[in-house]
Design a protein around this nucleic acid. Structure first.
Length: 609
DNA sequence: CGCGTTTGACCTGCGC
DNA sequence: GCGCAGGTCAAACGCG
Protein backbone atom coordinates (compact mmCIF):
# COMPACT_ATOMS: atom_id res chain seq x y z
CA UNK A 1 0.00 0.00 0.00
CA UNK A 2 1.39 3.25 -1.01
CA UNK A 3 1.75 5.44 2.00
CA UNK A 4 2.70 8.56 0.27
CA UNK A 5 -0.74 9.94 -0.27
CA UNK A 6 -2.62 12.30 1.83
CA UNK A 7 -5.10 14.99 1.22
CA UNK A 8 -4.94 18.04 3.34
CA UNK A 9 -6.99 21.14 3.38
CA UNK A 10 -5.26 23.63 5.48
CA UNK A 11 -7.60 26.48 6.11
CA UNK A 12 -5.26 28.32 8.34
CA UNK A 13 -4.33 30.39 5.39
CA UNK A 14 -7.27 31.85 3.65
CA UNK A 15 -5.05 33.26 0.99
CA UNK A 16 -3.64 30.02 -0.15
CA UNK A 17 -6.96 28.29 -0.20
CA UNK A 18 -9.66 30.89 -0.48
CA UNK A 19 -12.58 28.64 0.14
CA UNK A 20 -13.72 30.67 3.05
CA UNK A 21 -15.64 33.74 2.44
CA UNK A 22 -14.22 36.87 3.86
CA UNK A 23 -17.52 37.32 5.59
CA UNK A 24 -16.88 34.28 7.67
CA UNK A 25 -15.68 34.94 11.16
CA UNK A 26 -12.07 34.10 11.73
CA UNK A 27 -11.70 30.42 12.14
CA UNK A 28 -9.12 28.58 14.07
CA UNK A 29 -6.58 26.73 12.02
CA UNK A 30 -8.05 23.60 10.66
CA UNK A 31 -6.10 20.91 9.07
CA UNK A 32 -7.79 17.96 7.58
CA UNK A 33 -5.66 15.06 6.80
CA UNK A 34 -7.23 12.22 4.99
CA UNK A 35 -4.38 9.94 5.29
CA UNK A 36 -3.60 7.23 7.66
CA UNK A 37 -0.61 5.04 7.87
CA UNK A 38 -2.55 2.07 8.92
CA UNK A 39 -5.76 0.47 7.93
CA UNK A 40 -7.65 1.18 11.06
CA UNK A 41 -8.96 4.55 10.16
CA UNK A 42 -10.23 5.38 6.80
CA UNK A 43 -12.80 7.37 5.11
CA UNK A 44 -15.20 5.02 3.48
CA UNK A 45 -16.82 7.10 0.85
CA UNK A 46 -13.82 7.59 -1.28
CA UNK A 47 -11.72 4.97 0.25
CA UNK A 48 -9.47 7.64 1.56
CA UNK A 49 -7.95 6.87 4.86
CA UNK A 50 -8.88 9.40 7.43
CA UNK A 51 -7.03 10.10 10.57
CA UNK A 52 -9.39 11.88 12.85
CA UNK A 53 -7.26 11.85 15.87
CA UNK A 54 -5.74 14.85 17.40
CA UNK A 55 -3.10 13.46 19.60
CA UNK A 56 -1.84 15.27 22.60
CA UNK A 57 1.07 17.39 21.69
CA UNK A 58 3.51 19.41 23.61
CA UNK A 59 1.89 22.67 22.82
CA UNK A 60 -1.30 21.62 24.43
CA UNK A 61 0.49 20.38 27.49
CA UNK A 62 2.37 23.61 27.74
CA UNK A 63 -0.88 25.50 27.53
CA UNK A 64 -2.18 23.47 30.37
CA UNK A 65 0.84 24.11 32.46
CA UNK A 66 0.55 27.71 31.59
CA UNK A 67 -2.52 27.99 33.73
CA UNK A 68 -5.42 27.00 31.53
CA UNK A 69 -8.17 25.69 33.70
CA UNK A 70 -9.61 23.64 30.93
CA UNK A 71 -7.30 21.18 29.40
CA UNK A 72 -8.22 20.73 25.78
CA UNK A 73 -7.08 17.39 24.70
CA UNK A 74 -9.02 15.35 22.32
CA UNK A 75 -7.46 12.02 22.76
CA UNK A 76 -8.94 9.50 20.41
CA UNK A 77 -11.60 10.12 17.90
CA UNK A 78 -12.26 6.72 16.60
CA UNK A 79 -15.05 6.42 14.13
CA UNK A 80 -14.31 3.02 12.92
CA UNK A 81 -13.41 0.79 15.73
CA UNK A 82 -15.84 -1.40 17.53
CA UNK A 83 -13.57 -1.49 20.50
CA UNK A 84 -15.25 1.46 22.04
CA UNK A 85 -18.52 -0.33 22.22
CA UNK A 86 -17.45 -2.59 24.99
CA UNK A 87 -14.55 -0.86 26.57
CA UNK A 88 -14.45 2.79 27.29
CA UNK A 89 -11.39 4.75 28.16
CA UNK A 90 -10.33 2.10 30.52
CA UNK A 91 -6.91 3.53 30.99
CA UNK A 92 -8.34 6.16 33.20
CA UNK A 93 -6.99 6.17 36.65
CA UNK A 94 -8.30 8.63 39.16
CA UNK A 95 -4.87 9.11 40.57
CA UNK A 96 -3.68 10.33 37.23
CA UNK A 97 -6.68 12.14 35.99
CA UNK A 98 -4.69 15.13 34.95
CA UNK A 99 -2.52 13.11 32.71
CA UNK A 100 -4.67 10.37 31.34
CA UNK A 101 -8.21 11.45 30.85
CA UNK A 102 -8.84 10.54 27.28
CA UNK A 103 -12.21 11.59 26.14
CA UNK A 104 -13.29 9.29 23.44
CA UNK A 105 -15.70 10.50 20.85
CA UNK A 106 -17.42 7.49 19.61
CA UNK A 107 -18.90 6.44 16.41
CA UNK A 108 -20.61 9.35 14.83
CA UNK A 109 -20.02 12.89 13.97
CA UNK A 110 -23.13 13.92 12.25
CA UNK A 111 -24.91 16.90 10.90
CA UNK A 112 -23.88 20.21 9.76
CA UNK A 113 -27.44 21.25 10.20
CA UNK A 114 -29.37 22.30 13.24
CA UNK A 115 -29.30 18.98 14.95
CA UNK A 116 -27.42 19.15 18.19
CA UNK A 117 -24.30 17.14 18.18
CA UNK A 118 -24.95 15.53 21.44
CA UNK A 119 -27.83 13.68 19.89
CA UNK A 120 -25.36 11.52 18.09
CA UNK A 121 -22.25 12.12 20.00
CA UNK A 122 -21.06 10.20 22.94
CA UNK A 123 -18.26 11.84 24.76
CA UNK A 124 -16.80 9.62 27.32
CA UNK A 125 -14.55 11.46 29.64
CA UNK A 126 -14.10 8.64 32.01
CA UNK A 127 -16.69 9.92 34.44
CA UNK A 128 -18.16 6.53 34.92
CA UNK A 129 -14.86 5.19 36.00
CA UNK A 130 -14.42 8.19 38.17
CA UNK A 131 -17.69 7.48 39.86
CA UNK A 132 -16.77 3.88 40.28
CA UNK A 133 -13.52 4.88 41.83
CA UNK A 134 -15.26 7.14 44.25
CA UNK A 135 -17.37 4.27 45.41
CA UNK A 136 -14.47 1.97 45.59
CA UNK A 137 -12.43 4.40 47.59
CA UNK A 138 -15.22 4.90 50.02
CA UNK A 139 -15.58 1.23 50.63
CA UNK A 140 -11.93 0.56 51.24
CA UNK A 141 -11.27 2.95 54.04
CA UNK A 142 -9.25 1.32 56.70
CA UNK A 143 -11.10 2.37 59.81
CA UNK A 144 -8.86 0.38 62.01
CA UNK A 145 -5.90 2.66 61.44
CA UNK A 146 -7.16 6.17 60.89
CA UNK A 147 -9.33 8.04 63.24
CA UNK A 148 -12.90 8.81 62.27
CA UNK A 149 -12.22 12.53 61.99
CA UNK A 150 -9.24 12.05 59.81
CA UNK A 151 -11.15 9.63 57.76
CA UNK A 152 -13.97 12.05 57.21
CA UNK A 153 -11.62 14.81 56.38
CA UNK A 154 -9.80 12.71 53.92
CA UNK A 155 -13.05 11.65 52.36
CA UNK A 156 -14.27 15.18 52.13
CA UNK A 157 -11.07 16.28 50.54
CA UNK A 158 -11.21 13.50 48.09
CA UNK A 159 -14.82 14.16 47.32
CA UNK A 160 -14.07 17.78 46.74
CA UNK A 161 -11.31 16.83 44.41
CA UNK A 162 -13.55 14.48 42.58
CA UNK A 163 -16.23 17.09 42.23
CA UNK A 164 -13.71 19.47 40.82
CA UNK A 165 -12.67 16.84 38.40
CA UNK A 166 -16.26 16.31 37.45
CA UNK A 167 -16.70 19.97 36.82
CA UNK A 168 -13.54 20.10 34.87
CA UNK A 169 -14.61 17.24 32.72
CA UNK A 170 -17.98 18.75 32.12
CA UNK A 171 -16.26 21.85 30.93
CA UNK A 172 -14.07 19.69 28.83
CA UNK A 173 -17.10 18.10 27.28
CA UNK A 174 -18.43 21.50 26.54
CA UNK A 175 -15.20 22.52 24.95
CA UNK A 176 -15.18 19.44 22.84
CA UNK A 177 -18.62 20.21 21.61
CA UNK A 178 -17.60 23.73 20.80
CA UNK A 179 -14.64 22.39 18.96
CA UNK A 180 -16.85 20.16 16.93
CA UNK A 181 -19.08 23.08 16.18
CA UNK A 182 -16.07 24.95 14.96
CA UNK A 183 -15.01 22.18 12.71
CA UNK A 184 -18.46 21.73 11.31
CA UNK A 185 -18.73 25.45 10.84
CA UNK A 186 -15.57 25.42 8.84
CA UNK A 187 -16.86 22.55 6.86
CA UNK A 188 -20.09 24.31 6.14
CA UNK A 189 -18.33 27.45 5.04
CA UNK A 190 -16.04 25.45 2.83
CA UNK A 191 -18.91 23.72 1.15
CA UNK A 192 -20.85 26.89 0.63
CA UNK A 193 -17.86 28.52 -0.91
CA UNK A 194 -17.32 25.54 -3.11
CA UNK A 195 -20.87 25.65 -4.35
CA UNK A 196 -20.58 29.34 -4.98
CA UNK A 197 -17.49 28.73 -7.04
CA UNK A 198 -19.18 26.06 -9.05
CA UNK A 199 -22.09 28.33 -9.68
CA UNK A 200 -19.78 31.04 -10.80
CA UNK A 201 -18.32 28.65 -13.29
CA UNK A 202 -21.74 27.80 -14.56
CA UNK A 203 -22.67 31.42 -14.90
CA UNK A 204 -19.51 32.12 -16.82
CA UNK A 205 -20.41 29.51 -19.35
CA UNK A 206 -21.87 30.76 -22.59
CA UNK A 207 -25.59 30.89 -22.34
CA UNK A 208 -25.84 29.34 -25.76
CA UNK A 209 -25.04 25.98 -24.31
CA UNK A 210 -28.28 25.85 -22.50
CA UNK A 211 -31.34 24.87 -24.33
CA UNK A 212 -34.54 26.71 -23.75
CA UNK A 213 -35.84 23.86 -21.70
CA UNK A 214 -32.87 23.94 -19.45
CA UNK A 215 -33.30 27.61 -18.88
CA UNK A 216 -36.93 27.13 -18.04
CA UNK A 217 -36.09 24.29 -15.71
CA UNK A 218 -33.38 26.28 -14.05
CA UNK A 219 -35.68 29.18 -13.50
CA UNK A 220 -38.32 26.92 -12.11
CA UNK A 221 -35.81 25.44 -9.71
CA UNK A 222 -34.56 28.80 -8.65
CA UNK A 223 -38.08 30.00 -8.11
CA UNK A 224 -38.79 26.95 -6.06
CA UNK A 225 -35.76 27.21 -3.87
CA UNK A 226 -35.31 30.90 -3.65
CA UNK A 227 -31.86 32.12 -4.43
CA UNK A 228 -30.24 30.08 -7.11
CA UNK A 229 -27.89 27.60 -5.68
CA UNK A 230 -29.58 27.34 -2.39
CA UNK A 231 -30.75 23.95 -3.36
CA UNK A 232 -27.31 22.83 -4.25
CA UNK A 233 -25.98 24.22 -1.05
CA UNK A 234 -28.57 22.39 0.91
CA UNK A 235 -27.69 19.30 -0.94
CA UNK A 236 -24.16 19.63 0.18
CA UNK A 237 -25.03 20.40 3.71
CA UNK A 238 -27.66 17.81 4.13
CA UNK A 239 -26.52 14.90 2.22
CA UNK A 240 -22.89 14.60 1.68
CA UNK A 241 -22.02 14.53 5.33
CA UNK A 242 -25.02 12.56 6.31
CA UNK A 243 -24.46 9.95 3.74
CA UNK A 244 -20.90 9.85 4.68
CA UNK A 245 -21.70 9.37 8.27
CA UNK A 246 -24.05 6.67 7.29
CA UNK A 247 -21.16 4.99 5.64
CA UNK A 248 -19.03 5.54 8.65
CA UNK A 249 -21.70 4.12 10.80
CA UNK A 250 -21.82 1.20 8.52
CA UNK A 251 -18.40 0.19 9.57
CA UNK A 252 -18.58 1.10 13.16
CA UNK A 253 -21.76 -0.51 14.07
CA UNK A 254 -24.29 -2.71 12.51
CA UNK A 255 -27.01 -1.00 14.45
CA UNK A 256 -28.81 0.17 11.41
CA UNK A 257 -28.79 -3.20 9.81
CA UNK A 258 -29.68 -4.72 13.13
CA UNK A 259 -32.68 -2.49 13.26
CA UNK A 260 -33.64 -3.60 9.84
CA UNK A 261 -33.17 -7.16 10.91
CA UNK A 262 -35.46 -6.72 13.83
CA UNK A 263 -38.03 -4.69 12.08
CA UNK A 264 -38.39 -6.66 8.90
CA UNK A 265 -39.05 -10.32 9.12
CA UNK A 266 -38.95 -11.09 5.42
CA UNK A 267 -35.45 -9.77 5.24
CA UNK A 268 -34.17 -12.01 7.93
CA UNK A 269 -33.75 -14.82 5.52
CA UNK A 270 -31.59 -12.71 3.36
CA UNK A 271 -29.54 -11.50 6.21
CA UNK A 272 -29.00 -15.04 7.31
CA UNK A 273 -28.01 -15.86 3.82
CA UNK A 274 -25.54 -13.08 3.99
CA UNK A 275 -24.26 -14.44 7.24
CA UNK A 276 -23.81 -17.80 5.64
CA UNK A 277 -21.88 -16.13 2.93
CA UNK A 278 -19.65 -14.54 5.46
CA UNK A 279 -19.07 -17.67 7.42
CA UNK A 280 -18.26 -19.55 4.35
CA UNK A 281 -15.81 -17.01 3.22
CA UNK A 282 -14.06 -16.60 6.50
CA UNK A 283 -12.08 -19.62 5.49
CA UNK A 284 -11.06 -17.95 2.35
CA UNK A 285 -8.86 -15.09 1.55
CA UNK A 286 -11.49 -12.72 0.43
CA UNK A 287 -14.05 -12.65 3.12
CA UNK A 288 -17.17 -10.88 2.22
CA UNK A 289 -19.22 -9.83 5.15
CA UNK A 290 -22.41 -8.48 3.82
CA UNK A 291 -23.38 -5.44 5.71
CA UNK A 292 -26.97 -5.44 4.86
CA UNK A 293 -29.40 -7.69 3.24
CA UNK A 294 -29.90 -7.44 -0.46
CA UNK A 295 -33.53 -7.31 0.35
CA UNK A 296 -33.17 -4.10 2.17
CA UNK A 297 -31.14 -2.85 -0.71
CA UNK A 298 -34.00 -3.42 -2.99
CA UNK A 299 -36.84 -2.15 -0.99
CA UNK A 300 -37.66 0.44 -3.51
CA UNK A 301 -35.89 3.22 -1.69
CA UNK A 302 -35.81 5.38 -4.67
CA UNK A 303 -34.96 8.99 -4.18
CA UNK A 304 -38.53 10.00 -4.43
CA UNK A 305 -39.68 7.77 -1.68
CA UNK A 306 -36.87 8.83 0.51
CA UNK A 307 -37.60 12.41 -0.05
CA UNK A 308 -41.25 12.08 0.63
CA UNK A 309 -40.97 10.03 3.74
CA UNK A 310 -38.00 11.66 5.32
CA UNK A 311 -37.17 15.30 5.26
CA UNK A 312 -33.47 15.63 4.59
CA UNK A 313 -32.55 16.76 8.03
CA UNK A 314 -34.20 13.93 9.80
CA UNK A 315 -33.39 11.31 7.27
CA UNK A 316 -32.80 7.97 8.76
CA UNK A 317 -29.23 6.90 8.49
CA UNK A 318 -30.06 3.49 7.22
CA UNK A 319 -32.07 5.03 4.43
CA UNK A 320 -29.22 7.27 3.51
CA UNK A 321 -26.90 4.37 3.66
CA UNK A 322 -29.09 2.31 1.42
CA UNK A 323 -29.47 5.11 -1.04
CA UNK A 324 -25.79 5.92 -0.98
CA UNK A 325 -25.15 2.38 -1.98
CA UNK A 326 -27.69 2.55 -4.72
CA UNK A 327 -26.12 5.51 -6.40
CA UNK A 328 -24.31 4.31 -9.43
CA UNK A 329 -21.69 5.70 -11.63
CA UNK A 330 -21.45 4.20 -15.03
CA UNK A 331 -18.36 4.58 -17.15
CA UNK A 332 -18.59 3.93 -20.83
CA UNK A 333 -15.32 3.48 -22.58
CA UNK A 334 -13.97 1.74 -25.57
CA UNK A 335 -12.05 -1.27 -24.54
CA UNK A 336 -11.01 -4.47 -26.11
CA UNK A 337 -10.15 -5.92 -22.79
CA UNK A 338 -12.68 -7.82 -20.74
CA UNK A 339 -12.43 -5.45 -17.85
CA UNK A 340 -11.18 -2.05 -16.92
CA UNK A 341 -8.13 -2.00 -14.74
CA UNK A 342 -9.16 0.63 -12.29
CA UNK A 343 -6.65 -0.11 -9.60
CA UNK A 344 -8.91 -2.21 -7.44
CA UNK A 345 -9.13 -5.92 -7.00
CA UNK A 346 -12.37 -7.56 -7.95
CA UNK A 347 -13.89 -10.93 -7.59
CA UNK A 348 -16.56 -12.11 -9.89
CA UNK A 349 -19.61 -13.42 -8.13
CA UNK A 350 -22.12 -13.79 -10.86
CA UNK A 351 -23.03 -13.41 -14.42
CA UNK A 352 -26.35 -12.86 -16.05
CA UNK A 353 -27.80 -12.40 -19.44
CA UNK A 354 -29.57 -9.10 -19.39
CA UNK A 355 -32.58 -8.50 -21.49
CA UNK A 356 -31.95 -6.71 -24.72
CA UNK A 357 -28.26 -7.37 -24.72
CA UNK A 358 -26.66 -10.48 -26.15
CA UNK A 359 -23.59 -9.80 -24.07
CA UNK A 360 -23.62 -11.18 -20.57
CA UNK A 361 -23.36 -8.90 -17.61
CA UNK A 362 -20.71 -9.79 -15.07
CA UNK A 363 -20.96 -8.91 -11.41
CA UNK A 364 -17.90 -8.13 -9.37
CA UNK A 365 -17.18 -7.34 -5.75
CA UNK A 366 -14.26 -5.39 -4.47
CA UNK A 367 -11.91 -7.71 -2.63
CA UNK A 368 -9.34 -5.23 -1.48
CA UNK A 369 -10.75 -5.26 2.01
CA UNK A 370 -13.01 -7.40 4.07
CA UNK A 371 -16.56 -6.35 3.67
CA UNK A 372 -15.97 -3.66 1.12
CA UNK A 373 -19.43 -2.95 -0.22
CA UNK A 374 -18.34 -1.77 -3.61
CA UNK A 375 -19.63 -3.71 -6.55
CA UNK A 376 -19.41 -3.25 -10.19
CA UNK A 377 -21.10 -4.57 -13.25
CA UNK A 378 -19.32 -5.01 -16.51
CA UNK A 379 -21.15 -5.40 -19.73
CA UNK A 380 -20.54 -4.68 -23.34
CA UNK A 381 -22.80 -2.32 -25.12
CA UNK A 382 -25.29 -4.10 -27.31
CA UNK A 383 -25.08 -1.51 -30.06
CA UNK A 384 -21.34 -1.23 -30.11
CA UNK A 385 -19.52 -4.10 -28.56
CA UNK A 386 -16.30 -2.25 -28.47
CA UNK A 387 -17.82 -0.16 -25.72
CA UNK A 388 -17.42 -1.52 -22.27
CA UNK A 389 -19.88 -0.25 -19.71
CA UNK A 390 -18.64 -0.47 -16.16
CA UNK A 391 -21.08 0.48 -13.46
CA UNK A 392 -19.79 1.16 -9.98
CA UNK A 393 -21.96 0.97 -6.93
CA UNK A 394 -21.03 1.73 -3.36
CA UNK A 395 -18.05 3.25 -1.71
CA UNK A 396 -14.82 1.70 -0.65
CA UNK A 397 -14.23 1.23 3.03
CA UNK A 398 -10.51 0.89 2.76
CA UNK A 399 -7.51 2.81 1.57
CA UNK A 400 -6.98 2.74 -2.12
CA UNK A 401 -3.79 2.64 -4.09
CA UNK A 402 -3.07 5.81 -6.01
CA UNK A 403 -4.10 4.08 -9.18
CA UNK A 404 -7.56 3.59 -7.83
CA UNK A 405 -7.92 6.88 -6.01
CA UNK A 406 -9.02 9.07 -8.81
CA UNK A 407 -11.53 6.68 -10.22
CA UNK A 408 -13.00 6.12 -6.80
CA UNK A 409 -12.98 9.83 -6.13
CA UNK A 410 -14.68 10.66 -9.34
CA UNK A 411 -17.32 8.04 -9.06
CA UNK A 412 -17.95 8.73 -5.41
CA UNK A 413 -18.14 12.44 -5.87
CA UNK A 414 -20.48 12.04 -8.77
CA UNK A 415 -22.57 9.60 -6.81
CA UNK A 416 -22.66 11.80 -3.76
CA UNK A 417 -23.69 14.83 -5.68
CA UNK A 418 -26.12 12.85 -7.72
CA UNK A 419 -27.71 11.60 -4.57
CA UNK A 420 -27.73 14.97 -3.00
CA UNK A 421 -29.67 16.26 -5.93
CA UNK A 422 -32.09 13.43 -6.04
CA UNK A 423 -32.87 13.51 -2.40
CA UNK A 424 -33.34 17.16 -1.80
CA UNK A 425 -35.19 18.39 -4.77
CA UNK A 426 -38.47 19.60 -3.48
CA UNK A 427 -40.63 17.59 -5.78
CA UNK A 428 -38.47 14.53 -5.63
CA UNK A 429 -37.83 14.64 -9.33
CA UNK A 430 -34.34 15.05 -10.53
CA UNK A 431 -33.55 17.67 -12.99
CA UNK A 432 -30.90 16.02 -15.06
CA UNK A 433 -29.82 19.10 -16.86
CA UNK A 434 -29.47 21.19 -13.81
CA UNK A 435 -27.82 18.46 -11.88
CA UNK A 436 -25.45 17.44 -14.55
CA UNK A 437 -24.35 20.98 -14.89
CA UNK A 438 -23.95 21.26 -11.20
CA UNK A 439 -21.89 18.14 -11.06
CA UNK A 440 -19.93 18.52 -14.20
CA UNK A 441 -20.47 22.01 -15.44
CA UNK A 442 -18.89 21.49 -18.78
CA UNK A 443 -19.83 17.97 -19.45
CA UNK A 444 -23.28 18.08 -20.83
CA UNK A 445 -22.30 15.67 -23.53
CA UNK A 446 -20.05 13.54 -21.39
CA UNK A 447 -21.93 12.95 -18.20
CA UNK A 448 -25.56 12.15 -18.11
CA UNK A 449 -27.87 11.46 -15.28
CA UNK A 450 -30.59 8.95 -15.46
CA UNK A 451 -33.73 9.58 -13.52
CA UNK A 452 -35.54 6.75 -15.17
CA UNK A 453 -33.08 4.09 -14.11
CA UNK A 454 -34.05 2.07 -11.05
CA UNK A 455 -31.18 3.67 -9.21
CA UNK A 456 -29.85 7.16 -9.58
CA UNK A 457 -27.08 6.79 -12.08
CA UNK A 458 -24.57 9.11 -13.55
CA UNK A 459 -22.87 8.04 -16.71
CA UNK A 460 -19.47 9.19 -17.77
CA UNK A 461 -19.20 8.64 -21.45
CA UNK A 462 -15.67 8.29 -22.69
CA UNK A 463 -16.69 6.92 -26.03
CA UNK A 464 -17.09 10.03 -28.10
CA UNK A 465 -16.76 8.86 -31.65
CA UNK A 466 -15.41 12.11 -32.94
CA UNK A 467 -11.92 11.12 -32.21
CA UNK A 468 -8.87 12.33 -33.83
CA UNK A 469 -6.47 9.44 -33.88
CA UNK A 470 -3.72 11.59 -35.22
CA UNK A 471 -3.94 13.94 -32.35
CA UNK A 472 -4.15 11.06 -29.99
CA UNK A 473 -1.11 9.52 -31.52
CA UNK A 474 0.70 12.80 -31.40
CA UNK A 475 -0.15 13.13 -27.81
CA UNK A 476 1.14 9.69 -27.08
CA UNK A 477 4.35 10.36 -28.86
CA UNK A 478 4.74 13.66 -27.16
CA UNK A 479 4.36 12.12 -23.79
CA UNK A 480 6.17 8.97 -24.63
CA UNK A 481 3.20 6.99 -23.52
CA UNK A 482 2.46 3.67 -25.03
CA UNK A 483 -0.74 3.54 -26.95
CA UNK A 484 -3.53 3.44 -24.46
CA UNK A 485 -5.94 0.63 -24.88
CA UNK A 486 -8.87 2.91 -24.59
CA UNK A 487 -9.92 5.90 -26.48
CA UNK A 488 -10.83 9.20 -25.13
CA UNK A 489 -13.19 11.73 -26.56
CA UNK A 490 -10.78 14.05 -28.17
CA UNK A 491 -12.76 16.09 -30.60
CA UNK A 492 -11.61 16.37 -34.14
CA UNK A 493 -9.13 19.09 -34.72
CA UNK A 494 -8.35 19.75 -31.14
CA UNK A 495 -5.10 19.10 -29.54
CA UNK A 496 -5.60 17.03 -26.48
CA UNK A 497 -3.20 19.28 -24.73
CA UNK A 498 -5.11 22.33 -25.59
CA UNK A 499 -8.78 21.72 -25.45
CA UNK A 500 -11.15 24.35 -26.48
CA UNK A 501 -14.14 25.29 -24.46
CA UNK A 502 -16.17 22.60 -26.14
CA UNK A 503 -14.73 19.71 -24.21
CA UNK A 504 -12.56 20.84 -21.37
CA UNK A 505 -13.94 18.05 -19.35
CA UNK A 506 -12.59 15.61 -21.85
CA UNK A 507 -9.09 16.59 -21.09
CA UNK A 508 -9.80 16.63 -17.45
CA UNK A 509 -10.96 13.10 -17.77
CA UNK A 510 -8.04 12.25 -19.90
CA UNK A 511 -5.61 13.64 -17.43
CA UNK A 512 -7.48 12.13 -14.62
CA UNK A 513 -7.52 8.76 -16.22
CA UNK A 514 -3.87 9.19 -16.89
CA UNK A 515 -3.02 9.83 -13.31
CA UNK A 516 -5.51 7.41 -11.98
CA UNK A 517 -4.01 4.60 -13.91
CA UNK A 518 -7.29 4.04 -15.62
CA UNK A 519 -6.29 1.51 -18.14
CA UNK A 520 -7.81 -1.34 -19.93
CA UNK A 521 -5.89 -4.42 -19.35
CA UNK A 522 -5.70 -7.05 -21.98
CA UNK A 523 -5.14 -9.67 -19.42
CA UNK A 524 -7.78 -10.81 -17.07
CA UNK A 525 -7.69 -9.05 -13.79
CA UNK A 526 -9.25 -11.67 -11.64
CA UNK A 527 -9.40 -14.76 -13.60
CA UNK A 528 -11.32 -15.01 -16.76
CA UNK A 529 -14.48 -13.34 -17.63
CA UNK A 530 -17.03 -14.10 -20.18
CA UNK A 531 -17.39 -10.52 -21.03
CA UNK A 532 -15.91 -11.25 -24.38
CA UNK A 533 -12.58 -9.67 -25.06
CA UNK A 534 -12.19 -8.41 -28.54
CA UNK A 535 -9.43 -9.34 -30.88
CA UNK A 536 -6.32 -7.48 -29.85
CA UNK A 537 -5.04 -4.80 -32.10
CA UNK A 538 -1.77 -5.55 -33.80
CA UNK A 539 -0.03 -2.60 -32.27
CA UNK A 540 -1.49 -3.23 -28.92
CA UNK A 541 1.04 -2.71 -26.25
CA UNK A 542 0.64 -4.27 -22.96
CA UNK A 543 -0.50 -1.94 -20.27
CA UNK A 544 0.02 -4.06 -17.26
CA UNK A 545 -2.04 -3.03 -14.35
CA UNK A 546 1.00 -3.15 -12.15
CA UNK A 547 2.46 -0.34 -14.17
CA UNK A 548 0.94 2.17 -11.89
CA UNK A 549 2.03 5.74 -11.91
CA UNK A 550 4.48 6.80 -9.33
CA UNK A 551 3.50 9.37 -6.79
CA UNK A 552 5.39 12.02 -8.67
CA UNK A 553 3.65 11.08 -11.87
CA UNK A 554 0.36 11.09 -10.16
CA UNK A 555 0.84 14.49 -8.62
CA UNK A 556 2.22 15.99 -11.77
CA UNK A 557 -0.60 14.56 -13.80
CA UNK A 558 -3.10 15.89 -11.32
CA UNK A 559 -1.43 19.24 -11.44
CA UNK A 560 -1.50 19.15 -15.20
CA UNK A 561 -5.15 18.33 -15.14
CA UNK A 562 -5.89 21.19 -12.83
CA UNK A 563 -3.81 23.67 -14.68
CA UNK A 564 -5.19 22.59 -18.00
CA UNK A 565 -8.77 22.91 -17.07
CA UNK A 566 -10.41 24.87 -14.30
CA UNK A 567 -13.38 22.60 -14.57
CA UNK A 568 -11.29 19.85 -13.25
CA UNK A 569 -11.18 21.93 -10.14
CA UNK A 570 -14.85 21.45 -9.76
CA UNK A 571 -14.51 17.72 -9.99
CA UNK A 572 -11.64 17.62 -7.60
CA UNK A 573 -13.42 19.97 -5.30
CA UNK A 574 -16.42 17.75 -5.43
CA UNK A 575 -14.32 14.83 -4.40
CA UNK A 576 -12.75 16.82 -1.62
CA UNK A 577 -16.11 18.03 -0.59
CA UNK A 578 -17.41 14.56 -0.22
CA UNK A 579 -14.39 13.65 1.80
CA UNK A 580 -14.80 16.56 4.10
CA UNK A 581 -18.39 15.71 4.44
CA UNK A 582 -17.45 12.55 6.17
CA UNK A 583 -14.52 13.76 8.07
CA UNK A 584 -15.73 16.61 10.20
CA UNK A 585 -12.43 16.25 11.71
CA UNK A 586 -9.44 18.07 12.74
CA UNK A 587 -6.01 16.77 12.37
CA UNK A 588 -2.73 18.41 12.86
CA UNK A 589 -0.62 15.71 11.45
CA UNK A 590 1.42 17.48 8.89
CA UNK A 591 3.13 14.43 7.62
CA UNK A 592 2.49 13.35 4.09
CA UNK A 593 0.82 16.60 3.29
CA UNK A 594 3.30 18.29 1.09
CA UNK A 595 2.15 16.77 -2.15
CA UNK A 596 -1.44 17.40 -1.47
CA UNK A 597 -0.79 20.86 -0.21
CA UNK A 598 0.71 21.30 -3.60
CA UNK A 599 -2.50 20.19 -5.17
CA UNK A 600 -4.54 22.25 -2.77
CA UNK A 601 -2.63 25.37 -3.61
CA UNK A 602 -3.07 24.66 -7.30
CA UNK A 603 -6.70 24.18 -6.66
CA UNK A 604 -6.97 27.38 -4.74
CA UNK A 605 -5.22 29.34 -7.39
CA UNK A 606 -7.69 28.11 -9.94
CA UNK A 607 -10.61 28.57 -7.70
CA UNK A 608 -9.69 32.16 -7.57
CA UNK A 609 -9.93 32.54 -11.34
C1' DC B 1 -5.27 -27.91 -1.69
C1' DG B 2 -6.60 -23.20 -1.89
C1' DC B 3 -8.68 -19.81 -4.42
C1' DG B 4 -11.35 -17.77 -8.00
C1' DT B 5 -14.74 -18.64 -11.61
C1' DT B 6 -18.79 -20.79 -13.44
C1' DT B 7 -23.50 -21.53 -13.57
C1' DG B 8 -28.01 -23.11 -12.25
C1' DA B 9 -31.02 -22.09 -8.53
C1' DC B 10 -33.07 -18.93 -5.71
C1' DC B 11 -34.87 -14.46 -4.01
C1' DT B 12 -37.01 -10.10 -4.59
C1' DG B 13 -39.29 -6.27 -6.80
C1' DC B 14 -42.24 -4.78 -10.21
C1' DG B 15 -45.70 -4.61 -13.79
C1' DC B 16 -49.77 -6.60 -15.59
C1' DG C 1 -51.38 -14.07 -8.35
C1' DC C 2 -48.28 -14.70 -12.03
C1' DG C 3 -44.44 -14.01 -14.89
C1' DC C 4 -40.39 -11.51 -15.88
C1' DA C 5 -36.01 -9.47 -14.98
C1' DG C 6 -32.27 -8.17 -12.07
C1' DG C 7 -29.37 -9.54 -8.60
C1' DT C 8 -27.24 -12.90 -5.53
C1' DC C 9 -26.05 -17.39 -3.66
C1' DA C 10 -23.40 -21.45 -3.36
C1' DA C 11 -21.99 -25.99 -4.98
C1' DA C 12 -19.22 -27.58 -8.55
C1' DC C 13 -15.41 -26.99 -11.23
C1' DG C 14 -10.81 -25.68 -12.94
C1' DC C 15 -6.33 -23.87 -12.45
C1' DG C 16 -1.84 -23.15 -10.43
Amino acid sequence: MDKGWGLTLDTSSSTSLPFFSSKQPPQPPLSMNFFSKDNTTMFPVLGFPVNLSRPTNKEEEEEEEGGDQIRMVVGEVDFFSDKNKSSTSARHDHNHLHQHVKPTIKKELVCVDEKPYNSNLQVNTGLQLLTANIGSDQSTVDDGVTSEAEDKQAKNTELAQMQMELQRMNSENQKLKEMLSHVSGNYTALQMHLVALMQQQQLQKPRSESTENEVVQKKAEEKKHGIGGEMVQRQFLDLVPSGTVAEVDDHVSNSSSDERTRSSTPQNNKIEAGTRDYVRNTNGKNELAREESPGSESQGWGPNKLQKMNPPNVMDQSNIEATMRKARVSVRARSEAPMISDGCQWRKYGQKMAKGNPCPRAYYRCTMAVGCPVRKQVQRCAEDRTILVTTYEGTHNHPLPPAAMAMASTTSAAASMLLSGSMTSADGIMNPNLLSRAILPCSSNMATLSASAPFPTVTLDLTNNDLNPLELQRHQLHHNHPSPLFQLPFPVGQNPQNFGAATPFAQALYNQSKFSGLQFSQEHQVGSSQVPPLAPRPNLQQQPSQQQPSLADTVSAATAAITADPNFTAMLAAAISSIIGGAHANNNDDNNNSNINNMASKLSSFSGN
